[in-house]
Design a protein around this nucleic acid. Structure first.
Lengths: 192, 192
DNA sequence: AAATTAAACTAACAAACGTTAGTTTTGTGT
DNA sequence: ACACAAAACTAACGTTTGTTAGTTTAATTT
């Protein structure tokens, strides 16, 4: 029976991310996290440096996933529409695999400190800039309707970023169906 | 020179909402709010009952705006597509008028207590149910493409709900241009 | 069986929190 | 000038916070 070994540290981070999703980073205490694991708060410090480490580990791991994914799409040898389709699918894949961590990334990134905060903001800006470039390219090539690029960018990004909220709420619809419908809605709109 | 008189209580709520937008309700202390106004924390209690009142005032006022707006749209004597267009425009109007409060509504509603929390959740469910009904009606009448209604609902709602984040960041583009492009993107998609 | 390491525990710390009580200052109406 | 109300102040309260120190228990290695 093969079973992935999960270190105690990973357990703590997983537990914390579940709690962060409900009430946010600041409202969850070390005692809350410990109680959720059936131990005392002080015991957590045998495995982690502090509360801040939980947050930064959680967020930066996923942030790197997004960065890598976007860089890969940017290097694709395809047209703008195909690239956007790839971004959407990439985003959905990450959402499914890191659905707990995404709440912290979306809502608690501002509680990162020092270099962690700087790095995160930088990665986020790069991500958006890459996306913006694809959209503008698409408009120039006549593949995308000539609307305000920011409106297009944030319409798609908002939808993708909020996906984690209702993905599990709505009984886990099939990922491939989700991808298909999502791409269709975002690219082709809803009006017949 | 006519100038709207702003009560001290309203000043407190306005100041708090600005701070809440940056760090969230829990991370902002009464001392933070007071300092932002150049007074001491204890002085706030001459005008308000407590921190919780700030949050509930802030959120419930806007929540009622949304509820009223949606009820008005539901009573419109028009087709589904026209109604969705109205919802989008209504949402943009409220975002422009209450852009500070919307951060709290989106991110800190779970810190409401008792009846305030219950009322909010109820209003939110009703709002979504109304929206869902319009979409399903549109699909039945063949005015909307037959995609998964939840995907359509949350694609639009996510975009509208996150609008407050980047509306002011991007140098206040004209509201009418925004409405026009937003309706176009959400209804007709981006692909030519 | 003894020794070592890992992971839990109890107890306590300084700091920050929301809030209250009582007092002083500021502003307004007579 | 006086009285009153509004709005600020200082000081303190009981909790909760993240974290540290020192100790005990459980698991693993020799």
């Amino acid at each position: 029976m093969s079973m992935k070994t999960v270190s105690r540290k990973e357990e703590i981070i997983a537990t914390a991310s579940r709690l962060f999703k409900e009430k946010g980073y600041v409202a969850v205490s070390m005692r809350d996290i410990a109680q959720s694991m059936g131990i005392k708060a002080a015991s957590l410090y045998n495995h982690i440096d502090g509360k801040q480490e939980i947050l930064s580990t959680l967020i930066l791991e996923v942030a790197h996933e997004f960065t890598n994914g976007m860089n890969q799409v940017a290097m694709e040898n395809t047209g703008p529409i195909e690239k956007i389709k790839s971004v959407i699918e990439m985003h959905i894949d990450i959402t499914v695999n890191y659905s707990e961590a995404l709440a912290a990334l979306n809502n608690d990134w501002m509680h990162l400190e020092n270099d962690d905060l700087k790095d995160f903001v930088q990665m986020r800006e790069n991500y958006e800039e890459n996306f913006r470039h694809i959209i503008k390219d698409g408009i120039n090539k006549g593949e995308i309707r000539p609307r305000h690029p920011e409106v297009i960018l944030f319409s798609i990004l908002s939808t993708l970023r909020t996906l984690y909220v209702w993905y599990q709420k709505r009984g886990k619809l099939d990922v491939n169906v989700l991808k298909k419908d999502m791409v269709a809605v975002l690219l082709k709109g809803i009006a017949v």
